[in-house]
């Protein structure tokens, strides 16, 4: 498929998913023509719109980050959650909450971004040391487990059982009842993260020919790595601080789109951003449609979809990696 046609089709899909996300819920609300001041208009403006905007931004960021990481590491299993970047961001945010910053969400967000950037820097050190594919995924798994354990440690030290419940609920990943202020805090950094990833795309193409070739083509590998580190760290960190850990988006989307977009990293990052947005918008609308007063946690729903997909991927790549 031609890149422009693919992008246009995906953008249309995102628009449809956005409208679906706005109208879906325990009660369906049409996104247009609501009487000003009615309960429905209030719900649309203050609950569903921030939620849809966050799903759009976070989905796009996770999709793009997955595509960029897969290109950079030349590894089909790379994804912000698999490599422990999301868990490190969550650890940063929980640490901030634990130290008493719960009332200042800006600090919680900043700590989330710091956690993600530190995780990216650790991975960068490994790449600098010439780590193999297997080493990389292993390092990611260890990082993820360590961050998860440290988070559990902080939770077990939480001063009150109620604060504890709040952190546990948040860490499961959801966009329920987020405010416009949450969206305003996360979206600028997500936009910045996406903007940093885009210029790294061309360098990634050259890198796919091997590091020596890339260097001879004049690619500044250090600059490219810095862009990916900051872009992924800031964008994913800002998202996790608001939504908790939502995994698998960055893993699934590039694989679904590669047959349409081709293998070049530069050709897959933008479509993955669009595809990630459409996937998360749709998933976040579906979790609200489960029967009963409760909704399914978005992070859990994505794991239910993503884990079987991951296993399928491993099965199809068996013999080729490791």
């Amino acid at each position: 498929m031609r890149p422009a046609a693919l992008a246009a089709a995906l953008a249309l899909l995102v628009a449809l998913a956005f409208l679906f996300n706005l109208s879906a819920g325990k009660v369906f609300i049409p996104p247009f023509g609501l009487a000003a001041g009615s309960a429905d208009a209030l719900i649309m403006a203050e609950l569903r719109l921030p939620r849809a905007l966050l799903a759009l931004g976070i989905g796009a960021m996770l999709g793009a980050a997955g595509a960029a990481l897969q290109g950079w590491l030349r590894n089909p299993l790379a994804d912000p959650a698999v490599l422990g970047i999301s868990a490190s961001a969550a650890l940063g945010s929980v640490l901030a909450i634990f130290l008493g910053a719960a009332a200042t969400p800006a600090i919680v967000s900043a700590a989330g971004m710091a956690g993600a950037v530190v995780a990216m820097a650790l991975l960068l050190l490994l790449v600098g040391g010439g780590a193999s594919t297997t080493m990389f995924i292993l390092a990611g798994v260890i990082l993820s487990t360590l961050a998860g354990s440290l988070m559990a440690l902080l939770i077990s030290l939480a001063p009150t059982p109620f604060a504890l419940g709040e952190i546990v609920t948040w860490s499961m990943g959801a966009l329920t009842d987020r405010t416009m202020a949450d969206a305003a805090r996360a979206l600028p950094f997500i936009a910045l993260g996406l903007a940093l990833l885009m210029p790294a795309a061309r360098a990634l193409d050259a890198l796919s020919l091997g590091e020596e070739t890339a260097r001879s083509l004049g690619v500044r590998i250090g600059r490219m790595q810095a862009l990916i580190m900051l872009g992924t760290g800031l964008g994913v960190g800002a998202g996790v601080a608001v939504s908790g850990v939502v995994g698998f988006v960055g893993l699934i989307v590039p694989h679904l789109l590669r047959p349409l977009a081709g293998e070049q990293p530069s050709a897959i990052i933008l479509p993955s951003a669009l595809g990630g947005a459409a996937l998360l918008l749709t998933a976040d609308a579906l979790v609200r449609l489960v029967p009963g007063a409760q909704e399914l946690k978005l992070g859990i729903a994505m794991a239910l979809i993503g884990a079987p997909f991951f296993l399928l991927l491993l099965w199809r790549h068996r013999g080729r990696i490791g």
Partner: peptide
Amino acid sequence: DMAAVEPLVRRSPGLLLTDRPERLHPVLRR
């Protein structure tokens, strides 16, 4: 149970007793 905010906007719960009224979701205030 965990109560979502949206149903409380659609149908008022009357008086809301909460541990941190200052952290009330802005839509409920509106």
